[in-house]
């Protein structure tokens, strides 16, 4: 049976991709952020996954407002990326795990999560940058299953629904026959807001509450409406919904292996948190 070995949740700010391309890891602005991934990679060296389930939101590369799924699951053998309009560096196509994708799709639909399935799917910086942070030396030595959550167009799925969706994915993985080691990679957030008179809004208080609750009390976050999450985390801070899905996938109690919260990266309160099941 397949097993979730843990989760890495991280911000996915596009500027990180440019910093990687320009090799700014030792630059004083960037060093505290990139150094936070050294212990993450040490943990990964001891916990090597076969497949990474990436929970993220698309920023208008694969999905547009013509068709906007609330939850979409990739079921492709390979996932390409593009420059997204502003020249972000692209990476070679990422390998998929089609059989696991369909096992997850079958599991969640049986649980009444009627997802969109994608046999062709581009993945954007929200997938490629976190993978580069985990495997900076080259193409990641894993297959992926991308799972996209709508954090773009309201109404967004509720935090409660996101947690239950994650738990359903977790059950599908646990019931999947092949003995695969699965890493959950949730991306986005934490608090930030790009638009409006409140642009630049950051809320360390709510971020800290989320980081603490995600360890063993994710239900606490389901008490917030998506409107309240926007108010507390900023418009794009609603990407914390991806983290809530990811936490649901890791079933049961967890131990926090590490966290690195660092402000500012671009307009964002950046964070990385590693959890492992106990």
């Amino acid at each position: 049976m397949s097993k979730v070995i843990g989760s890495v949740s991280t911000s996915h700010v596009p500027a990180i991709g440019n910093a990687i391309a320009k090799r700014l890891q030792q630059d004083p602005y960037w060093k505290p952020f990139f150094d936070g991934f050294i212990p993450v990679r040490e943990w990964l060296a001891r916990n090597t996954p076969d497949v990474v389930v990436v929970v993220y939101n698309d920023h208008g590369l694969n999905f547009f407002l013509d068709k906007m799924p609330t939850f979409a699951i990739g079921a492709a053998a390979s996932y390409g990326s593009e420059d997204e309009g502003w020249g972000i560096p692209t990476v070679p196509p990422l390998a998929g795990d089609v059989d696991l994708s369909w096992a997850i799709i079958e599991g969640v639909v049986k649980d009444e999560f009627d997802v969109t399935t994608c046999q062709e799917m581009l993945v954007d910086h929200a997938v490629t940058i976190p993978l580069q942070l985990l495997w900076p030396a080259g193409p990641p030595p894993v297959r992926i299953v991308p799972i996209a959550v709508n954090t773009v167009q309201h109404p967004l799925p509720s935090a409660a629904r996101c947690l239950k969706f994650g738990q359903s994915i977790g059950r599908a993985i646990a019931a999947y026959g092949p003995a695969l080691k699965i890493l959950v990679l949730s991306t986005g957030g934490l608090s930030h807001q790009l638009e409006g008179g409140r642009a630049g809004f950051i809320n360390p208080e709510f971020d800290a509450l989320c980081l603490n609750a995600l360890i063993n009390d994710p239900e606490k976050l389901t008490g917030y409406t998506t409107h309240q999450i926007v108010e507390l985390a900023g418009s794009q801070g609603s990407e914390v919904l991806n983290w809530i899905v990811g936490r649901g996938i890791v079933q049961g109690e967890t131990r926090e292996v590490l966290r690195n919260y660092h402000i500012p990266i671009s307009n964002t309160a950046s964070a990385v948190q590693v959890l492992e099941p106990v």
Binding site: Q153, E195, G196, R198, F201, T225, H227, V230, E231, S235
Partner: peptide, 12 residues
């Protein structure tokens, strides 16, 4: 919903 000052929410 009650508007959030300085925060446009992208609705339908």
């Amino acid at each position: 919903e009650k508007p959030i000052p300085g925060t446009p929410v992208f609705t339908g």
